[in-house]
């Protein structure tokens, strides 16, 4: 028997989630844009103080006022690492490394995946079937291992990391978009356009593509989060960007050896930065998904 629908709650929660996600993502993008110009220390140049812990939290307000208004030299907010590099400056500047790699990989895989998805959904023939099997093949390997091997083979440059991530994430967009196109192609307005004599490529471009974008757009927020995690992960195992590039994963890896000695700060702060960013993108994606589903 028909059950009365559940009242749709959670609208306010989704709104809050959206604001938090958008706030974090906005902050990270801002840091990526202006980071190198606002940090107190050069992220590549070692200072004399090695493995200095961060100042106690209680002193932060005083230190902040001293730095901003009394011309005192900036403290090492997050301490310094074993080579004497300022952890605070490097954590901020690393936002650019991680976000550029993740966003570029996401944009590329989005473009390639969605385009191929429209083609594979709209034209179903031997070539597009072969394409789907190829994407099955790509997706059947563990993502992290594949990325590691690809970067190891191609060389540890930004460009190669971006390409490796693109290759891994494009099948996700391909599949999502193709599924959407498969239902779209049965829709009446597609047939109406065919009956009007509109050429296939034009139908694909003007009717199918814009109407098939929604799931891929929602996915892209989630993918950026994963891409950041993967970029950091690759660097952590030594298959990512080269030191001393400021990059969160690399910083965590460099600091990891010191943790047993009690030096927790060189790893903790970049770790928080990764978590926060990934959470921000995930929250944004989840909120968008909820909004579109409702």
């Amino acid at each position: 028997m028909a059950r009365p629908e559940m009242a749709r709650g959670g609208g306010a929660a989704a709104g809050a989630l959206f604001r938090i996600g958008a706030g974090i993502v906005g902050l990270m993008i801002a840091l990526a844009a202006v980071g190198p110009w606002i940090v107190p220390y050069d992220p590549y140049t070692a200072t004399e103080v090695v493995s200095q812990p961060p100042p106690p939290l209680l002193q932060w307000p005083g230190l902040l006022i001293d730095t901003l208004f009394r011309g005192a030299p900036a403290p090492h907010w997050f301490g310094t690492d074993a080579s004497g590099l300022d952890v605070f400056s490097r954590t901020i500047v690393a936002a650019r490394t991680d976000l550029v790699i993740a966003l570029a990989a996401n944009a590329l895989s989005f473009g390639i995946g969605v385009t191929l998805g429209v083609v594979a959904g709209y034209y179903r023939n031997f070539a597009t079937e072969a394409l789907m099997r190829l994407s099955d093949l790509l997706q059947s390997f563990p993502v992290f291992i594949t990325a590691m091997i690809l970067v190891a083979l191609a060389g540890r440059s930004w460009g190669n990391i971006i390409l490796a991530l693109t290759l891994l994430y494009a099948p996700i967009y391909l599949r999502l978009t193709r599924a959407e196109v498969l239902t779209l192609r049965e829709r009446g307005f597609i047939e109406a356009a065919r009956a009007a004599g509109v050429p296939d490529w034009s139908i694909a471009l003007r009717h199918v593509l814009p109407n098939a974008l929604r799931p891929a757009l929602v996915q892209s927020s989630v993918t950026v989060g994963f891409a950041i995690l993967l970029t950091a992960g690759l660097s952590f195992v030594g298959a990512g960007v080269r030191p001393p590039t400021p990059e969160w994963g690399l910083m965590i890896a460099t600091g990891a050896g010191q943790i047993v000695l009690g030096d927790w700060w060189p790893s903790l702060f970049p770790g928080i930065a990764v978590s926060l960013t990934v959470f921000g993108f995930a929250a944004l994606g989840h909120a968008l998904e909820r909004r579109h589903a409702g």
Partner: peptide
């Protein structure tokens, strides 16, 4: 076609 809502983009 049958469903006009489906017939327009």
């Amino acid at each position: 076609r049958q469903d006009p809502f489906d017939s327009f983009d």
